[in-house]
Simulated assay, not measured.
Amino acid sequence: MPLSTTANPNSVKPDGGPLPLAVTMGEPAGIGPEIILKAWDRRQEENLAPFVVLGAKDVLHQYAPDLPLVSVTSPRDCPAIFDKALPVLDLPCPSRITPGQPDKTSAPQVIDAIDRAVELVFAGEARAVVTAPIQKSVLYEAGFDCPGHTEYLARLCNAHTGKPHQAVMMLASTLTATDTLRVVPLTIHVPLKDVPALITAELLSQTLEILHMALHQDFALSSPRIAVAGLNPHAGEDGGLGQEEQDIILPTLNRLRRKGRILQGPLSADILFHANARKNYDAVLCMYHDQALIPLKTLDFEGGVNITLGLPIIRTSPDHGTALNIAGQNQANPQSFINALKMAELMAANRTMR
């Protein structure tokens, strides 16, 4: 498939209808196949947009032999058949899959699905990528050299566009019809002892600008309001409990405020996440992983969505892992994956209108 240099700007087919979403199956021995199949089975009650699965058709059939699957050669065939069967762009696994027991021989297929999904968006064949969870340890064993999904997607986008992209992780949850919590960790998978040194004016500025743009472009917020948590207890107590707020965070926020950004903080993290506080912002930038993820997962453990900001494509994912301990047992809750599909569709629609 020829590569283009920019993602399709409109995400619509020539006949005016929306393009499908490109769904990667993820780790075939995990719960990815199950939640994909359950989502398709609930397509009408959840009002899901058409999607095509990039993965092994025989694995999907193994998990749900009674659900209709149809092989397709192009995502453009999907909308016409989606109501009656699940469209699959078949990428066979080299050996039979045993649920709960990953095999590194499937790693090339897992990576190929991600590669092809990104290519489909850049080629104007799909409107967004929704990824089921991968088992990173298996991919590492097979030679995968990226820390994770997000970094690999950024690398692919860099190759497609010839430009560097800073990927930013957002977790989002729609708690009620009028209450959505969006959190962004400034630092992610690093030891807590390393966090203070990683908080720089440059990283703060870049992350806040990417977040501001995403809230405007992908979530249709004309004047995004961003709350920023402090690093230390009570946001440093004016320097009494740490200097990061006074020396780095506050000066950076003030510079961005002069550019017109609507920023609150630095604020004590322990007052940011109750119901009344959530009314005052559209997203929270937190300083480290657990500061962001603990409140979101406490408020909505089953329904959160992982969103990658800062890329020229839209990518969402369920906010959970492969859950090998329950794979193949029909116990997986598909709600986070369903929400990821809906979020990708919403974001694509917002981009199309701009």
Rank of each mutant, 00 (worst) to 15 (best):
170 M>W: 10
145 D>S: 11
43 R>I: 14
123 A>V: 12
117 A>S: 14
37 L>R: 03
128 A>I: 03
166 Q>M: 14
171 L>F: 11
40 W>T: 06
48 L>E: 11
127 R>A: 05
46 E>S: 15
135 Q>A: 15
168 V>P: 03
130 V>S: 00
44 Q>H: 15
41 D>C: 14
41 D>V: 15
100 G>M: 03
118 V>F: 08
82 F>I: 01
95 S>W: 09
120 L>E: 08
171 L>A: 08
158 N>H: 13
70 V>E: 05
83 D>Y: 07
39 A>M: 10
92 P>W: 12
56 A>Y: 00
111 I>K: 04
110 V>M: 07
168 V>M: 04
106 S>L: 04
73 T>N: 13
57 K>Q: 15
54 L>R: 04
71 S>H: 02
67 L>T: 10
108 P>M: 09
60 L>T: 06
40 W>E: 03
46 E>Y: 10
94 P>T: 13
127 R>D: 02
72 V>F: 09
66 D>R: 10
162 G>M: 09
36 I>N: 01
140 Y>F: 15
88 V>H: 02
167 A>Q: 05
64 A>V: 14
147 P>N: 03
78 C>K: 04
96 R>H: 13
117 A>M: 06
101 Q>I: 14
169 M>Q: 01
89 L>F: 14
133 P>L: 04
124 G>Q: 03
165 H>P: 01
170 M>G: 03
150 T>Y: 09
151 E>G: 08
56 A>E: 04
32 G>P: 03
93 C>P: 00
162 G>Y: 04
138 V>H: 02
99 P>T: 08
99 P>K: 09
139 L>V: 02
126 A>L: 02
44 Q>Y: 14
117 A>Y: 02
62 Q>S: 11
95 S>Y: 13
45 E>I: 15
170 M>E: 02
107 A>Y: 05
30 G>M: 07
133 P>A: 07
78 C>R: 01
90 D>P: 06
170 M>P: 01
104 K>Q: 10
33 P>C: 10
67 L>D: 05
47 N>L: 13
71 S>F: 01
64 A>R: 12
156 L>W: 02
133 P>D: 00
151 E>R: 07
